[in-house]
Computed example of a mutant assay.
Amino acid sequence: MVSIRTDLAVEAKEIYEEKNKGKIPGVEMNEFRDGFIKVTDVKIVSDEGEKIMGKPKGNYITMEIPELTGYDQEYMEDVSRVLAKAISPLIKLDDSMTAMVVGLGNWHVTPDALGPKVVEKLMITRHLKQLIPDSIDEGIRPVCAMAPGVLGLTGIETGEIIKAIVNKIKPNLIICIDALASRRLERINRTIQIGNTGISPGAGVGNKRMEISEKTLGIPVIAIGVPTVVDAATIANDTIDLVLDEMIKHAKTGGKFYDMLNQLDRNEKQRMIEEILNPYVGNLMVTPKDVDSVIDSVSKVISTGINIALQPALELKQINSYLN
């Protein structure tokens, strides 16, 4: 559809509508606020919408959150509860069914370590249900988790590892967590996307791997992602657009130079920037300098949200007591 890299459905919709000055057929959108969090529900309902968006038919829920700070525990728990509220309708399990959480990404690379860090903070109960069922609270669902690494570390496709484990332990649901790519700087580390169509690891940075979805695994797959990087060419393009907008705004009417600037095709400009940058920096992806602390905070928010959604019989205090 476009050359700008993004994993977010809401951005894919924005890009198309900016270019074509109209709504996408077969795509429905609903925006609302849950407390201080803006939630956007993008639903792809037709084959035409699927083709235009470049994403499978299904639901893509986007939460836009203010900047997270690790010391504001109450604030982070509020975000986790909104996340749990978005995930819960997608989890169709009874107490005997098993959920498997998969933390995708490379734990040696901070912007890509979101998935493994979430797994570290989860309430894992499958072994407790099997070994000491009388010693745990009633209504606790069996949950297991894994962080399979990436192809460059293991030499094995991530999807192949997950499929082998699914065939062995036969979970009823998979929740995948992965770092994503965004087209806008303001969404980096401040957006959470929840989808019910699975995920293709590495797609946002041009390393598309085996799809992890109900089609490939035979069970429902919920994908949770946070954009942690943005394409350098997109930053350059947006910066130039801001400069041009300011120049055009303050220009005298009738100037041929400013008329020419106003008529520039922004997608063509994006391709030109990529061609200029590639010989010098390659496919450079950029992340904020405070990514270490932010990933720690975001991973805690997501793990807490998943714990709440997977264990509805427990209060958050009880969940925390199991983790401690």
Rank of each mutant, 00 (worst) to 15 (best):
G54D: 03
I37V: 15
K51E: 12
K13R: 15
M63H: 05
R33C: 11
N30R: 15
T69F: 14
L68G: 07
K43D: 09
G54E: 03
I24V: 15
F32Y: 15
V42S: 10
G70L: 10
P66D: 13
M29T: 15
K51Y: 02
N30S: 12
T40A: 14
Y60M: 04
S46Q: 06
E18W: 08
V42H: 08
Y60R: 04
E64L: 11
F36M: 11
I37D: 09
I37Q: 04
I61H: 02
V27N: 02
K55E: 00
E64V: 10
S46R: 04
E17T: 03
S46C: 04
Y60P: 01
K51T: 13
M53F: 02
K51M: 10
G70R: 05
V45Q: 01
A12K: 15
K57H: 00
E17N: 01
E64M: 09
K13M: 15
P66E: 11
E14D: 14
E64N: 13
G49P: 00
E18G: 04
T62I: 07
K23N: 09
E18A: 12
E28S: 13
I15L: 15
G58H: 00
K23P: 01
Y60T: 05
K57W: 01
E48D: 13
T40H: 07
K13H: 12
A12F: 07
M29N: 11
N59F: 03
K23L: 11
I24W: 08
M63D: 03
E48G: 08
E31P: 06
P25L: 07
E18Q: 14
D34N: 13
M53A: 06
I44T: 10
T40N: 15
K23G: 01
S46V: 04
G54T: 06
G35M: 08
T40C: 13
G22K: 12
I61E: 06
I37G: 10
E14T: 10
L68D: 05
K19L: 12
I61R: 08
G54P: 00
D34C: 11
N30A: 12
V42L: 10
V27K: 04
E28H: 09
K51V: 07
G49M: 05
I24A: 01
N20P: 04
V39S: 12
K19A: 14
M53C: 09
N59W: 00
V39A: 10
I15Y: 15
L68C: 12
E28T: 10
K55V: 00
G58S: 05
E64Q: 09
Y16I: 08
T62C: 11
E64A: 08
I52M: 03
G49W: 08
K23T: 12
L68I: 15
K23F: 05
V42Q: 04
Y60Q: 02
G49C: 07
F32W: 13
M29S: 15
I65A: 05
G58C: 05
N59E: 02
M29G: 12
E48W: 00
E67R: 05
G49L: 02
Y60D: 01
